[in-house]
Amino acid sequence: MASVQIEHLTKTYSSNSKVETLALDDLSLTINKGEFFALLGPSGCGKSTLLHIIGGLSSASGTILINGEPVKGPGLNRGIVFQEYALFPWKTVLENVAFGLKMKGVPKKERDLKAREYLALVGLSGFEERYPDQLSGGMKQRTAIARALAFDPEVLLMDEPFAALDAQTREILQEELLRIWEKTGKTVIFVTHSIEEAVYLAQRVAVITARPGRIKEIVEIPLPEHRTAEEDIRSSAVFTEVRHRLWKLLSEEVVNSGALNGYGRPQTVTREVGEKAPLRLAARERTGEA
């Protein structure tokens, strides 16, 4: 059963009145109910743009259906987790998590109860009265995840949520996210430029082409259902094999986008699968468009 259905999505930017940039080109995609789906692509391929369009924060031509209902703007059937956490610094952790429920019109007592429940789910019980500035990066993102889940959306949209975290915290949160996903059964659309992350988390990974963004290939990840239960799944033969396949698909795109942008010569991506290539992407993402 389709949870998110994207049909013929096209998005153009006009940076000035004369030049029009094609960001997404006639993109169609179906994501199943309860599926963990990753969007993987080089920087500037429009994967974050796609996520924002699904979130109703940006407009495009084409249609998006959430459980058969067309997206016309932002709505509480989708919860978004941003890379920058986007917590409200003047609200406590509890008030942040309860925000969506408040917008929904849920009475204070009830929404506080719900917010506490979701804070417990992300392991932040006892931090209700703290302010975001008093939390570490990992705790901030846990709060943001609790906030996006608390109003019980159909779909969880995650825009490179762990990219700003240190490697260790990132791994812990990836595992936590899988646990939460298994427990809540939400449909998750997860944007990342990290191959490892996509393989570890997702059931299916869509590789997006360099601008204009199209779907190059959708790769099924043949890893067991309960990945958190497996020991060191990242070293398994299946994991390595899928990662390599995705790496080959992605490296062609990085070469393309590098050639288009005028930097990032082919050498940087013909290096054996590594941490270096995504890092370069990350650096460029900050200078280029999001």
């Binding site: 109703g56 509480l76 941003f82 986007a86 409200f88 925000f99 906030r147």
Partner: peptide
Amino acid sequence: DPVLIRSARSMGAGGWSLFLE
């Protein structure tokens, strides 16, 4: 921060609620 505005809007804030919250 524009991301805070996006975040609030994504949770249904708009008009008065966006102003007050």
